[in-house]
Design a protein around this nucleic acid. Structure first.
Lengths: 128, 128
DNA sequence: CCTTGACCTTCCTATGACTGGAACCCTTAT
DNA sequence: ATAAGGGTTCCAGTCATAGGAAGGTCAAGG
């Protein structure tokens, strides 16, 4: 199948698939006309990537996960460690966003939000 | 004062301040030797930017906030609306990260993480 | 006076993970 | 013959910086 069908089956834009080829995540063979040819295996790999990216793994993590996936002898501990490291990063990002959100919430709460110019949000930004 | 001191007072890298000048967020005058000269007002503005960025506002939001800040007649409602829009975006990002985190947590939980090759994480990524 | 070291300047490149667009080729149907 | 709807490459842009090279400026010390 061509890139368009592979894209819709894997749930990735064709552009992204070309990019993944460029950085060596996939290497579909070419037809005589130069078109990339995708088999089930490649589509499966692309879907794997789409899901891993959907879970927020970086491209380099995905590269690692793919190679672990293709290594039938690897220990699940390695995958688990990678996932745990990633989970901790997500936790940190959530914590940071929640901190922001809390501050923002206080400011919004304190601001009358009417047509008068006094604004605690700007007052806070201007210097606490 | 020169850029170095302005940077440490505002809590921003000098590189970032040059960038902010490039995109028109600040316009410090120059000394005869070509050095940027920062007064209290500019440093204050930079600190304002640092705090707004720290709350996750985009550069364009910051530009807006700055111009609202400098408009003594603006209604606080406008600032409040901007902050609320931003808060909703943060909420959405938190929700997305929490969704990821939950899935990841389940997978990690299901994975023995030992030296055997069977791994629910990879099995899930490979296709549910 | 000269040098040293800490500043400052501009300009160019890179990041991550794509996205958009131009210019051009291939295939199929009308 | 042509038009539509694929495909191809290559270049530029995104966001908000960070890193580094090459060179100008300044105050202090020998």
């Amino acid at each position: 199948m061509n890139i368009g069908e592979a894209a819709s089956r894997a749930g990735l834009p064709a552009k992204t698939i070309r990019y993944y080829e460029e950085i060596g995540l996939v290497s579909p063979p070419r037809d005589a006309n130069g078109y990339r040819r995708f088999g089930e295996k490649e589509v499966h790999k692309l879907a794997f990537l789409a899901r891993a990216r959907g879970l927020g793994f970086s491209i380099e993590d995905c590269r690692m996960l793919l190679s672990l996936y293709e290594d039938r002898a690897r220990a699940s501990a390695e995958v688990r460690a990678l996932a745990q490291r990633h989970a901790r990063e997500i936790d940190a990002r959530i914590a940071q966003l929640e901190q922001m959100r809390a501050t923002l919430g206080e400011l919004i709460h304190a601001c009358a939000g009417d047509d008068r110019p006094d604004c605690p949000i700007l007052r806070d930004l201007a210097g606490r």
